[in-house]
Every structure is written in structure tokens, then in C-alpha cells.
């Protein structure tokens, strides 16, 4: 597979792009891992960390709710963007954290878990995990949405 020019991730660092999914020659055949798989692994890994309430920005979550209802969206890919090369991947995450959690500690735990999961499952080396905390979740937020307007 011919390598193309490196594509910058959101932080400006470059990941060697192949223009296609990650592929490795395995002797008598090739093994290909789609970008969607890397995206889902990163999304699931982020959600595994306590303190992470949801993934995606406000608009992404609003659109995601609609697209999931009509069956074309996937919650696991919301708020996750990956740049996947032949051997490396860069991950950008947008997320909502529970109020009261230490954002630096949660971010560090997310970074470690995403690197561990993506490297362990796909064999790709994770060059960076960029985290954007987009919102804070307060326990009352969900209740107020569900409260009836009439008694």
C-alpha cells in the first residue's frame, strides 16, 4: 500500500496516512482493520473510565439522538475522530464529564485506557489522544428533562 502525505490531527502532529484502513501483511494473506473499528475501540475505552458521562459535543449528541432513533447513527462513534495510518493512530475525543470529577485525572485515565485498548486490540501505535471536555454533567440535568409539565 503506497503511503501518502501525512495528515495532521487536530493538534497539528502528523500521522502517516495510507488513504485506507490499517492493513498488515501476515505471510499468506493480509489483515485489514477498518477505521470504524479503531473509532469504536477508542470510544468504548473512553466510556469505560469512571467520570465520563457521555461522548460528543452538544450538537453531535443532539444529532446523534436523532440519527440513533432512525437507526443510522452509532453512539459508540459519537465524539470520536481517528486518523489511522499503516502503523499509527491519533485519537481526538470530545466528551462530557460528571461534575465534581478531577478533569486532569479523568483525562489521564482516558488517555491511558485508550492507548492500552487501541494498541492491544489493533496493534497500532497511538501517537496522541487529544481530549476536549465540552460540558459538565450535573445529576439534576436528566431529571429536569424527564419532569412532567403537568401535575
Amino acid at each position: 500500500m503506497a503511503e501518502q502525505n501525512p495528515a495532521p490531527s487536530s493538534s497539528g502532529k502528523a500521522v502517516a496516512r495510507t488513504g485506507a484502513d490499517s492493513a498488515q501483511d501476515s505471510g499468506p494473506g493480509t489483515t485489514t482493520i477498518a477505521d470504524a473499528v479503531v473509532t469504536k475501540v477508542a470510544g468504548i475505552a473512553a466510556r469505560e473510565v469512571p467520570g465520563v458521562h457521555d461522548l460528543g459535543g452538544g450538537t453531535a449528541r443532539a444529532i446523534g439522538t436523532v440519527t440513533q432513533r432512525v437507526g443510522i447513527g452509532d453512539e459508540r462513534m459519537q465524539g470520536v475522530t481517528v486518523e489511522v495510518g499503516e502503523r499509527e493512530a491519533a485519537v481526538d475525543l470530545t466528551l462530557v464529564i460528571d461534575y465534581g470529577e478531577s478533569i486532569p485525572q479523568v483525562s489521564e485515565a482516558i488517555r491511558n485506557n485508550v492507548v492500552k485498548r487501541v494498541e492491544g486490540i489493533t496493534g497500532l501505535s497511538v501517537t496522541e489522544v487529544n481530549i476536549a471536555v465540552n460540558d459538565l454533567f450535573f445529576p439534576g440535568d436528566e431529571q429536569s428533562d424527564e419532569e412532567s409539565r403537568v401535575s
Partner: peptide
């Protein structure tokens, strides 16, 4: 790959087993 090669051997079709490519296109919980 290992298991397919062994199964092909057992089934007597190992001679015609060529390139085996495997792609993972998605992941489900």
C-alpha cells in the same frame, strides 16, 4: 489462518487454498 489451513488439510482441499485475506470492518458490543 492456522485453523483454516488445518481444516482445509482435513477436508482434502489444502492444495487449492491460496491467499487468505481477513478484514475487520466493524465492531459490535
Amino acid at each position: 489462518r492456522e485453523r483454516v489451513a488445518a481444516a482445509a488439510e482435513e477436508a482434502g482441499v489444502a492444495d487449492v487454498l491460496g491467499h487468505l485475506s481477513i478484514s475487520f470492518g466493524d465492531l459490535v458490543e
